[in-house]
């Protein structure tokens, strides 16, 4: 893909398709340990994002800012503010640069993680999206010397592993934390959706 605004828009269109395709899986995961609305909420959010992409802006940062405000307004629950914050901070980090570079993508991912942690106050091991995003940022940083596609691939691989690793964890944040020990044995839906989005971005970039 190109690394300008058009490339980012294309990556978001594939992300919306992935969210649509995995709606039921996310609903099922969330039903196990949450309130079962994550898949539907995220699908509603990305459907709204699709309708905004045509005139979203002419820099990657401008496009991601539109994504942020759309998700904040449409996703609801904790995922709306959290994903909204992630895209908002990434957009702010990218500023008005016309094209993504490997290092700006690393910085944007790191800013997104920082925003999510500040907003949700979750740490690694709490069984949240932070468990996918934290290793993703570390892996992206290790790949910073390569290309945008390589950075995103490394991030997606690490996020996928991070999401898998949430299965045995007992949740300490969010709705699942009310279940205590019973939250163990299920993958965290937020970590899963984070891994899915990063995979979609990586696939679009390669």
């Amino acid at each position: 893909m190109s690394c300008d605004a058009a490339g980012v828009v294309a990556a978001l269109r594939s992300a919306a398709e992935v969210v649509e395709a995995h709606r039921d899986e996310l609903v099922t995961l969330d039903r196990e340990i949450g309130d079962g609305d994550h898949g539907e909420n995220l699908k509603r959010g990305f459907t709204a994002v699709l309708s905004k992409l045509d005139n979203a802006g002419d820099t990657p940062g401008a496009v991601l800012k539109v994504v942020a405000s759309t998700l904040i307004s449409t996703v609801g629950g904790a995922a709306g503010p959290l994903y909204g914050t992630a895209f908002l901070r990434a957009a702010a980090k990218l500023g008005t640069e016309p094209e993504l570079t490997a290092s700006s993508v690393v910085d944007a991912l790191a800013a997104a993680l920082e925003g999510v942690v500040a907003r949700g106050k979750a740490e690694v091991g709490d069984k949240t999206m932070v468990d996918a995003l934290t290793p993703a940022v570390a892996a992206a940083r290790d790949a910073a010397g390569s290309s945008v596609a390589e950075v995103l691939r490394a991030a997606a691989d690490a996020a996928g592993k991070g999401a898998e690793d949430t299965v045995p964890l007992v949740a300490r944040k969010g709705r699942a934390s009310y279940l205590g020990e019973r939250s163990a044995g299920h993958m965290d839906p937020g970590a899963r959706s984070t891994a899915l989005l990063l995979r979609a971005f990586a696939d679009a970039a390669s």
Binding site: G80, T85, R119, R175
Partner: peptide, 10 residues
């Protein structure tokens, strides 16, 4: 509770 704080903060 919970995400209401996040929405307010945001």
């Amino acid at each position: 509770l919970g995400s209401a704080k996040m929405t307010a903060d945001l």
